[in-house]
């Protein structure tokens, strides 16, 4: 039997690793983090859960942000593709997504499956002394990244968020910067496979509180945590 991976054996640690341990998480290493592959259920069971009502911690996936009065033109020079509309997420041909948060601010989130060096390279290609008007925002630490999925996700979010996030109103790619359970959040509709899915970026220091608030809200839908293996399979379908 292979050694069991302990999250505290790695120096990069998710703010939620203790919660994952308590929930029976079986860990694999991703991006230097110990990530729950599953919570003791079969992948098939967790995929079923994800279709109904599931939550996953994707805080290990790379992400970054840029803002400033020249951020848009700089990103365009780096071959990033996005439209004029703010509060919308633009899928890149390489699989990353550019979240345009305002005319001058962007968050960039990596691919869930096969996360590449795209973001690391983008970060290191910024030269503050010469690239005027472009500033990095350390999104990978400011925010944790939670994925809420399943047909019941809109109803669950309606219990904690005052913005109308129903699929017919809030299309794939739409972004709302608002409060969820009284925390500032960036919520993006990013459907994965068949499941209606929302990516939520929120204060990493409040990750513990937020995770539990969402679990509480999804209790009536029999929702629960889903490991990354199930998420990868769903994302692969899409």
């Amino acid at each position: 039997m292979a050694d069991v991976l302990k999250p505290s054996s790695l120096i990069k640690r998710s703010f939620l690793y203790r919660i994952h341990e308590k929930a029976g998480g079986v860990f694999i290493e991703e991006n230097g983090f110990a990530v729950p592959s599953n919570y003791g259920q079969s992948v098939r069971e967790e995929i079923t859960l994800a279709h109904q009502m599931g939550i996953a911690d994707l805080s290990h996936v790379s992400r970054t942000g840029f803002k400033g009065w020249h951020a848009a033109s700089w990103l365009e020079k780096k071959n990033c593709k996005f439209g004029l509309e703010s509060n919308f997420s633009y899928l890149q041909s390489t699989g990353e997504r550019i979240l345009r948060l305002s005319p001058n601010e962007f968050a960039i989130v990596g691919k869930i499956v096969n996360d590449s060096d795209f973001i690391t390279e983008l970060n290191s290609s910024l030269h503050p002394e010469t690239d005027e008007g472009v500033f990095i925002v350390p999104r990978s630490d400011t925010n944790c990244w939670l994925k809420v999925m399943g047909v019941n996700a809109p109803s669950m979010l309606a219990k904690v968020c005052a913005v109308d996030l129903r699929p017919q109103i809030f299309p794939d790619g739409a972004i709302a910067q608002t409060n969820i359970a009284r925390l500032n959040c960036i919520v993006t509709r990013h459907d994965v496979g068949l499941a209606t899915t929302y990516d939520i970026l929120t204060d990493c220091a409040s990750a513990d509180y937020f995770w539990q608030a969402l679990l509480d809200a999804m209790d009536e839908f029999s929702g629960g945590p889903v490991g990354v293996t199930a998420v990868y399979q769903l994302a692969g379908v899409g």
Binding site: R13, F15, D203, A205, S206, D208, Y209
Partner: peptide
């Protein structure tokens, strides 16, 4: 209602 009282933990909280 279900009272939401966000609480922030530092990385070293535990």
């Amino acid at each position: 209602g279900r009272i939401f009282e966000p609480v922030r933990y530092t990385a070293m909280h535990h």
